[in-house]
Design a protein around this nucleic acid. Structure first.
Lengths: 345, 345
DNA sequence: ATGAAAGCGCTAACAG
DNA sequence: CTGTTAGCGCTTTCAT
């Protein structure tokens, strides 16, 4: 039924070794006539080398594992696309593993990937527990972490420059003339939020604005949380004149809080957020976002892991972590004033 | 370095065959004392059977291929989650393949998946070209198609009930009192749009409303396209009093057209769309959506392919296509009138 | 109830 | 320049 290298060898009147050398372009040279004959037979039969047998023999496969938390947003999808794009062009197949941010499931997947003999793993941790990384390491499986920082220097990492992003976002608002800028943080402290928060503080300091902890609040991941956070901030004695939210969903929630209720906000009120959850950015052109290049992060991660696997020197500029630049994407649609006006009239 | 069944056999003082029978619970019985001894050694050593060797021997693997078009939205992510969820619980690993809606890349992936000896493939076609399906079939690889209809009856398919969705959407608007309902179609005719469109027509007919082809227009996939389509429809002589858009992005574009420009629209103007691109639904609570259960579609697809692979009778209710129910999700936030008012004042 | 051994398809060392 | 062959780790038939 399925055609093997044995068949090719027989039909071309050569040995299986020769077939192998033709297929893999080496490691031994093959005379041109022989090569042509073999290629012809391969063409005719539609022979496709069996990757499973190849992997078993080579004791290493051309497959990667991708472990991501259970995201309901497009964040994952973009990163995965970037990874898969590079993997495809470099001849790797990718196993998709959703951990659901569950450490047990992450461990189960580590075992599964080990059983599948993957050459390397790209992991977006679901928590701050790096045990899966060390298990992979102890099994000699190269691993690259995306978008989470470990205190361990030896963890190959690709991450966004959250500090700079926080700085840019805050700077943007400052340039619009704001001095009282609220920060809606995410619920749980992680390296992302710390970086963004520190960027926020740094931008304030650079502009000579004194940091006021009353302008900082913890939101949540849902729209409602951003909404509530905005309410709380705006109802305080000296409310902010602009908001910087941890991500776009919370920013949207804040925006909604402003136009949905009778909140009094200044005419030039502004909201900015990281576009972690991407698509919402174009659903709401009224929002200025800090663009997180997810696709590019995926690409860099894939390039890094494959370089590590193939023992090539990783891309020259590689440091740990490998930072991806963030950029400001200004609102393209009606500015939020338009939306806010309705509530104030 | 890595521990094999050979090691386990030696340490437990049994043969490799026995180890295999213990690991796989058969097909031959093993005496309880022996079994315990083997299990103990496995525990101690952390032995993990090599799936690659197993696959080679069995001539079939416990891996699936998932080929999806290049989506920038969360559609893919949800379907993939559903698939992977079921696959994980049923012991399968999933190869992720983005085709970029490119038939050549789909074919390349078919070859890759064949080389990887996948047991089955789940495919969301990027076009109406079903060649990849027939190639898989001719290689004896079971394939399930998600969310696309082929004219070929023999293609195992899981799909959403687009006709019913179009019916529900239109019915919803009719119940709100609308009689002139515009339909913003997608650019290229495919089974989805045909189904939704026919559902639209059927609902009109059921309500005794005459179909008016001047109320139908082709939009595009981008926000701007929905925007333009809405403009064109609303500027006609007898404009619609409500819009049904192919998907949520186009619906959002239409919504934006209404509040962004000086368009005159009735007070009770309504817009509805399929939530194909999911997350935008919660970014814009002003929009009523027809919910497409992507996660569930993925689950059903995975269950179907695994049943086919394992030669179990597929789920009793299986027909071709296997339809997934759609439901109306009413707007939860401020209704669109709020947004529209500002432009009219 | 268990062991020995063949062989899945491939690659690469060894031998011409 | 090419052929022969061992062996990757596993399952399962054949033999005991």
């Amino acid at each position: 039924m399925t055609v093997t290298s044995e068949d090719i060898a027989r039909l071309a009147g050569v040995s299986r070794a020769t077939v192998s050398y033709v297929v893999n372009n080496g490691p031994r040279p093959v005379s041109e006539p022989t090569r042509q004959r073999v290629l012809e037979v391969i063409q005719q039969t539609g022979y496709q080398p069996n990757a499973v047998a190849r992997n078993l023999r080579l004791q290493r496969s051309s497959t990667l594992g991708l472990i991501v938390p259970d995201t309901h947003n497009s964040y994952f999808s973009e990163v995965a696309r970037g990874i898969e794009d590079v993997a495809f062009h470099r001849g790797y197949a990718v196993f998709l593993c959703h951990s659901g941010s569950d450490i047990n499931r992450e461990i189960q997947y580590v075992n599964l990937l080990k059983a599948q003999q993957v050459a390397g793993v790209i992991w977006i941790p679901g928590s701050s527990d790096f045990e899966p990384f060390y298990q992979l390491k102890s099994n000699n499986i190269q691993t690259v972490v995306i978008d989470r920082i470990s205190s361990d220097e030896d963890v190959p990492t690709v991450t966004a420059d959250n500090f700079n992003g926080g700085f840019l976002a805050t700077q943007h608002l400052i340039r619009l003339g704001h001095k009282r800028i609220g920060y809606i943080n995410r619920p749980v402290e992680m390296s992302h939020s710390r970086g963004r928060f520190e960027g926020y503080q740094s931008a304030l300091q650079t502009a000579g604005i004194k940091f006021d902890k009353n302008l900082v609040i913890k939101g949540g991941f849902k729209l409602e949380n951003g909404c509530n956070a905005a309410h709380q901030l705006l109802e305080r004695n000296a409310p902010p004149t602009a908001l910087f939210a941890y991500n776009d969903i919370m920013a949207l929630g804040a925006l909604r809080a402003c136009y949905e209720t009778g909140l009094k906000v200044p005419d030039d009120f502004s909201i900015i957020g990281f576009d972690d959850i991407a698509e919402s950015a174009f659903s709401c052109p009224a929002l200025t976002t800090i663009h997180l290049p997810k696709f590019e992060m995926g690409q860099q991660g894939a390039n890094l892991i494959i370089s590590l696997i193939e023992n090539q020197p990783p891309p020259a500029e590689t440091s740990t972590p490998l930072n991806v630049e963030l950029i400001v994407r200004e609102s393209t649609g009606p500015v939020n004033e338009d939306l806010l006006l309705q509530e104030k009239s």
